[in-house]
Nucleic acid binder design. Structure first.
Lengths: 300, 300
DNA sequence: TAAAAATACTCCATAGGTATTTTAT
DNA sequence: ATAAAATACCTATGGAGTATTTTTA
């Protein structure tokens, strides 16, 4: 058995065709054919049932492919580990950020890297949960920061929970609701446009439980976008009320442009974010820097 | 990079001597020397510091050795996984059973697997003919056991006929009909509730041909369910008469609770069951065990 | 100056290529 | 009839052996 044969088998399992797999491997079809035959002969089992168009792995093939995948993963990590050692702090860092984390740390992360580690190539990918997890598993990004409540299948992941980020309502400092001489209710809020992202089921349910049926996103939210900065910009310039992570508007709140709007009963919901990486991958020095960064910057 | 080189490096890391490591690997010292050199050349790093007596791994060497250990572990597990599969001691077996076969072999199959092959993952799927065949063709199950009279399109199938299972009438041992001093007729039977599954067209026709129009299921059968054990339970506790595979009531008959009711003219109909798999698929050892099991357990 | 590792040289097993046949749809 | 996979045959690379030299404790 050798690593080439295993690569060949994995490719074959993916393409289900000797021809296509051979092309993908930059090999001739006969070479691939023999490579698989040799592997089968050595292991003394049939790995794939050749049934014309539709080749399928046998039970043996399944066993071999799954182990082979791990071995090839380890090989890739071996080579990457050497490169990391060689490159020191000049490596690259590819990060995937969910909408919440993106609004909270995108800017400070870019600034921090530009100032302190100018030789690190930083790439930030924005996206929805599924897309980010796919990117992570395909090793297109080194890590993602997402709401960990979405995570189901975590067997192959390494998850570092980050500090919670509070969520709430935010409006501009000159907003009429801030001058009210009584507590602001959800009905008051719904008199104005409410700007938010697409909220998960869990968050929606939570909103309703705490603030009543009027708070259901489908009724409450009138302005919806994945671009949180745009939403915040809107809240700055209009009477629209932003609903989301407080930290996303940190700069505007500090500048006195925006203010948190306290709604009774108090809506206080946290985003439970986490730094997620593929288990078994060596962390680059840049990755460790990012971890430190997240720990420091995840707060309200 | 290949697995031999990695084995060599790991041995070298353990023995800290080319000489000793070479001996342990049943290799000559120059061969080992070159093997390591080739690996170093390919990875373009020094893996081990040659300092005469006491060789030590470099930082690169540490990275490579630790990943290599995992790869070799995976390789060992790969081979062990195949052996387990081969010995029939592991693996998975997904079986689809039609109503008749299910009642006849579900329990013994579960018991047999639990006792003799505790590490095989057995899944039994119950269902009607069409559903089972669909599952088989989509490879959701490895095999189905069904009444082969239903089979039409068999081009892509491998069919092993199993021993016929007799069908007939069964009632409890204390049933009034058993004390009759004349042959029991179908009219006698129809005086009582008759419990059975949904019968195929062919079986229905056959029933009528042999026992007359009174025997048509739509008239005859008053208790209908796919759950044969429930029907048998009913026959045990009431004067209802069970119509179906005799073997399904094997246990109760052996225990003297139920008895076969002979109806004149003799109704003797066999279930022509078969073990059906997709042609061209390699049989796992678990599958072969199941085949043997079926051959042994399909009898009255 | 011994023991250890590297080098020089030879052999052959095997992975890969091209050309062709066999198989299955 | 055609696409896919297997087979036949050839070449070249590289891994392993033996003999020998170089290194260093």
């Amino acid at each position: 058995m050798n690593l080439s044969q295993l690569k060949h088998l994995v490719a074959l399992a993916e393409h289900r065709s000797f021809r296509k797999a051979a092309d993908a491997l930059y090999l001739t079809q006969p070479a691939l054919s023999r490579s698989i035959q040799n592997l089968e002969a050595e292991l003394n089992v049939t790995l794939i049932d050749r049934v014309g168009r539709r080749n399928t792995l046998t039970a043996y093939g399944e066993v071999v492919v799954s182990r082979a995948r791990r071995m090839l993963f380890e090989e890739k990590e071996l080579r990457r580990g050497l490169e990391l050692l060689n490159s020191g702090l000049s490596g690259s860092l590819n990060i995937g950020l969910g909408p919440g984390p993106s609004s909270a740390i995108s800017n400070p992360l870019l600034r921090s890297m530009a100032q302190d580690y100018p030789r690190i190539q930083l790439t930030i990918v924005r996206g929805r949960f599924d897309y980010l997890m796919k990117s992570l598993r395909e090793e297109l990004v080194d890590a993602v920061v997402i709401d960990q409540r979405n995570l189901n299948d975590v067997a192959d992941l390494e998850i570092e929970p980050l500090q919670h980020l509070r969520a709430g309502f935010i409006c501009r400092a000159t907003h009429p609701l801030l001058t009210l001489d009584r507590p602001v209710t959800i009905s008051d809020v719904s008199e104005y446009p409410v700007a938010s992202t697409f909220l998960s089921e869990e968050v929606s349910r939570n909103l309703m439980e705490q603030l009543g049926p009027e708070a259901h996103p489908s009724k409450l939210i009138t302005l919806r976008s994945e671009e949180i900065p745009s939403l915040i910009e809107t809240a700055c310039q209009t009477d629209a009320i932003f609903l989301g992570i407080i930290a996303a508007a940190r700069r505007e709140i500090d500048a006195g442009i925006l203010r948190e709007l306290l709604v009774t009963p108090v809506y206080y919901r946290v985003g439970r974010f986490a730094l997620v990486t593929l288990a078994g991958r060596t962390w680059s020095p840049a990755m460790k820097l990012f971890q430190t960064f997240c720990r420091e910057h995840f707060h309200d």
